[in-house]
Design a protein around this nucleic acid. Sequence first.
DNA 1: TTCTGGCACTCGTGTGTTCAGAGTGCCAAG
DNA 2: CTTGGCACTCTGAACACACGAGTGCCAGAA
Lengths: 344, 344
Amino acid sequence: MAGEVRQLDDRKLAVLRAIVQDYVGTEEPVGSKALVERHNLGVSPATVRNDMSALEEDGYIHQPHTSAGRIPTDKGYRLFVDRLAEVKPMSAPERRAIRHFLDGAVDLDDVVARTVRLLAQLTRQVAVVQYPSLSRSTVRHIELVALAPGKVMLVLITNTGRVEQRMVDCPGAVGEVVLADLRAKVNTRAVGRRLPEVPGLLEDVPALFEAADRPTVTTVLATLFEALAEQNEERIMLAGTANLTRFGHDFPLTIQPVLEALEEQVVLLRLLGETADAGMTVRIGRENAYEGLNSTSVVSVGYGSGDESVAKLGVIGPTRMDYPGTMGAVRAVARYVGQILAES
Amino acid sequence: MAGEVRQLDDRKLAVLRAIVQDYVGTEEPVGSKALVERHNLGVSPATVRNDMSALEEDGYIHQPHTSAGRIPTDKGYRLFVDRLAEVKPMSAPERRAIRHFLDGAVDLDDVVARTVRLLAQLTRQVAVVQYPSLSRSTVRHIELVALAPGKVMLVLITNTGRVEQRMVDCPGAVGEVVLADLRAKVNTRAVGRRLPEVPGLLEDVPALFEAADRPTVTTVLATLFEALAEQNEERIMLAGTANLTRFGHDFPLTIQPVLEALEEQVVLLRLLGETADAGMTVRIGRENAYEGLNSTSVVSVGYGSGDESVAKLGVIGPTRMDYPGTMGAVRAVARYVGQILAES
DNA sequence: TTCTGGCACTCGTGTGTTCAGAGTGCCAAG
DNA sequence: CTTGGCACTCTGAACACACGAGTGCCAGAA
């Protein structure tokens, strides 16, 4: 009761929870009478009104106009997510379906494609999946091939099944022997290590070659480092944009900026980049840095082949979304994708 | 004047042209009075009304309700495109801008990405670009690499700069010598040929090896054929979905099926597949096979590195689009992409 | 024969009014 | 602290109505 920051008692929290649940269900402002009818709060509408009054004063809910019901604010959803909601676990049949759908994937592209579609379908929202990023994954194998005199092809294969290839133009012809030697030395040092570590581990390599071959070696290594460092190559796949049509009543206005955001890989990458490494991240309305997404919420989480996350995935939906359900779906999908990646 | 099929005189055609132009500009049904005011047809509104009446009877235009202006029908647009409109060439500065924007591309992915964005921006509609397809392109080089005993990596490089790689699990170890021999034989026969021809040209190859090596050879070749045949790998990139918000007034209804169509690569591929090999294809409203796109028009054209087209590109917009301008933009972009591909 | 002006008619749209219902805030009593 | 009661506000639906854009048709002019 101390002025500014009021301690919310249990009933007020229950009222807020009920408001969120009803509003998410009906999409209409919810009033005191309807509330007591649907949830058995054990008190009268008048009491609820008092509580609502308090909640509004503290900024958790808000009325569109006098004599209308209440709608949760971003702050209200935040409190709901943090303290009032439990992540809703997927049912057994749902889990089986997820498992089964993902198991059919044949390669990395397919895994990502299936994941994003699945997520969009489960949540009925827009789904976003980042390809396992290069920087967090480890080297499975590095291959060097002489294609033509002075032309070497470099292939980098990571533990996530991703393959990157580069052409290298070398100064002068490249001996098969030198190349084999280089290949061996590079692989011995790099295999199993994380990509960003690799350049450091290869520092001594050029010195091990004869002066005549050194230009070739350094050129090849330079290209390799480039491929390793390439943060740009972080790709994203998305699905479920058709679900945007279920967004709200006031149409073009709401979805246009969202569609624009979805077209910008950079924006999406930054969005997922803000996801905490551990646990699930929920960004509600204005909490999103990109203002085109100010009327949406983003639920995201990392996924990975082992214990650690190699990339992120998530969904984008209206702030009035079913948080427990969405969070449950996102978590479940992330978990299963992780397993699939670990197996392959 | 002969009953069913009436010969449309010049003025009626002029009226239809004027209706299309005005409607595309204003998005509102256009009436006889407004028409004579804006275009100097040299006749009175009453005369125009008679012509409109005839045009309506023949199904070229249609009124939403009595006492409203007229709107072109699909058939009307069709006539407009076929006989009344000229493709509007891009202005010199526009052409320079296109050229400049595409010239900055660094690889095939980048070319496609830039093209699709450019097209979306120029036409302010949804743009679709197909990657140069494997089946129409030719072999630049085929590489075979022994990664580990019994593991061979196969790399296929095409004249469009596309690179496909496959892993091959061989029955038993693979000798370096055999592999080199196979590589040489395959390349001699395949380089420069179109992908679908290649399997036929390699029929004699297994017989040239000793019986012991033949299982390996056939396994490798089988994988190669698979990679060559892979029609699935036809990828598509799209951009400009945010332009959908400018589609019409009656919102969710119109754009939801369109968004759904855009998510299905298969639908888009089939859509572009219907494009004639030579010249520009315009599909208006109901002419589109996929019914989700029944209220849209698709303008598409082939593009290629030489004289022949290796892939298609196009835009999808409302039937009430600026056909001359859109066709001009599509044609210009296709031409420049072709040049870029030929240069690289 | 073709065009034109005039005229009556239709119909959608915008405006103003009314009315019911949902919801609120406040207050006095339990 | 809770509750029932009450007066008040505001939205949204329903309705009437006038306006204007646009049409179709017809008789007369070119």
